[in-house]
Design a protein around this nucleic acid. Structure first.
Lengths: 250, 250
DNA sequence: GCGTTGTTTTAGGCTAGACTAAACTCTGGT
DNA sequence: ACCAGAGTTTAGTCTAGCCTAAAACAACGC
């Protein structure tokens, strides 16, 4: 029977035990830093739906605890400790999403919210048992890479569906898990990780794109195409013979 | 953005969304009320490991929100709303315990702590999917009855192992989930829900009891025997009559 | 080089939930 | 019938995390 005296400074063995808000801040800062090189106060505020002043306050505390460095008016960057904590949370989130969809049959557009709450409550033991039950997957249902327990992640950058050249074929690899409507629509047109997709046509002025996914030829907006990441399709069995190469990819 | 005025009696639409501490208080009060008829401030304080003064404060707030009635210096009792909320949390807890042991292979002595945290984070959807995956079980791994989603529970009272007469045979049905050491020991001697147990001898003055469980004849202390609940064994060792009643309420 | 604009920080408050210390109330023993 | 001790409540603080309003700052256009 472990005696409880929760008000004392803990032995700090290996359980700093971050609060939910702290885990959320670190996770959000990690993602912003990945995308933009650094995280601005206002960006964090938007990501977490809190006032900018609240972010400043939290940031000062986290800097004091060694999770990040803050140059006033310049932005924040995670320290190694901060990055480790963020990746741990992200790992939990993605394993939970995987388990909920693959084992419990949740639709892929509803697992984000559920994982967002469970990631703070689940023990390492539970997470690793779920991972094992899934055969230690390397990506979640939306194609996002799952960090290892040691804190390494696949950092590959992918092209956007919007950047394909007309006629080009690719494999869908990833999409953000945060927009249920988008995810439901993608499921409807069968555009999910692993799916083969060909860009058949592109209307001018950022207009809609015509795709081929399986037998169907859905027409999607540019906004959608910017959110879907793809990688080069494995060398094609039969020639799709793209001849009208007029725009350089990239 | 929902409007804010959280300190007033709310219209009570359908999303009261209790906080973790509130759920814990209601659950603890429910259990104490079941056992003792009413819950005393100090009992709640011990159960939740907080100071008695903290309990008084929380109780005043919960009374104001209509979850319980409080007669100063006399104790508290849950209202219907309070009882419903408590049973919801207890249902979640027990379904989680069942899922963790039966599906994810957790040992039965470690699921309590895990469920204690997850019960506040899991959605109804998740709980019901887990319950369905288990075939809607009616009791958890420790034999505690699982309330239905509508809020009814099997309230049968059982005898304690300590109260058997020498020579009497019974079926083990239930034990508290809160003491991991005890649970580990019970697993060692195969004294788990469903096990047949016979009291072979009892030493005087609350001394140790000699049991028969399967082939073994473990000797256990009176304290242990007081925590283990049993029911009359199916009449004869031979001929198991078809018995199905498992849902009697009241 | 200076002011305007937008971002960031400071200052000051609020709530939930916990604490300690002190005051109050109930009850049981003599 | 009283009064001492156990149990309970009040009073006053504390911390985490959020808020708004106002001040400070950076940076860009002219």
């Amino acid at each position: 029977m472990p005696s409880r005296k929760p008000s004392e400074p803990q032995p700090q063995a290996s359980a700093p035990s971050l609060t939910e808000p702290v885990e959320d801040y670190l996770k959000a800062i990690y993602e912003l830093e990945r995308r933009n090189g650094a995280a601005a106060t206002s960006e964090v505020a938007v990501a977490l739906d809190v006032a900018p002043a609240s972010v400043t306050g939290m940031i000062r505390r986290l800097a004091g605890q060694g999770y990040l460095t803050h140059v006033p008016y310049r932005g924040v960057q995670l320290t190694d400790a901060g990055r480790r904590a963020a990746l741990r949370t992200i790992r939990r989130h993605r394993i939970l999403e995987s388990y909920l969809t693959r084992v419990l049959g949740f639709p892929w557009d509803s697992v984000h919210a559920e994982a967002e709450r469970l990631e703070h409550a689940a023990s390492d033991e539970l997470i690793e048992r779920m991972a094992a039950a899934l055969g230690n997957p390397t990506s979640d249902p939306h194609g996002a890479p799952i960090p290892t327990a040691e804190g390494t992640v696949d950092q590959r950058a992918y092209r956007r569906l919007a950047d394909l050249a007309v006629g080009e074929r690719a494999t869908m690899v990833q999409v953000s898990d945060k927009n249920p409507q988008l995810l439901r629509y993608l499921a409807e047109i069968a555009l999910q990780p692993g799916a083969e997709v060909t860009l058949l046509a592109r209307a001018p002025f950022d207009g809609p794109l015509t795709l081929r996914v399986g037998e169907a030829e859905p027409i999607v907006g540019a906004t959608l195409a910017e959110q879907v990441l793809v990688e080069d399709a494995p060398s094609e069995p039969v020639a799709a013979a793209p001849r009208k190469s007029r725009s350089g990819s990239r």
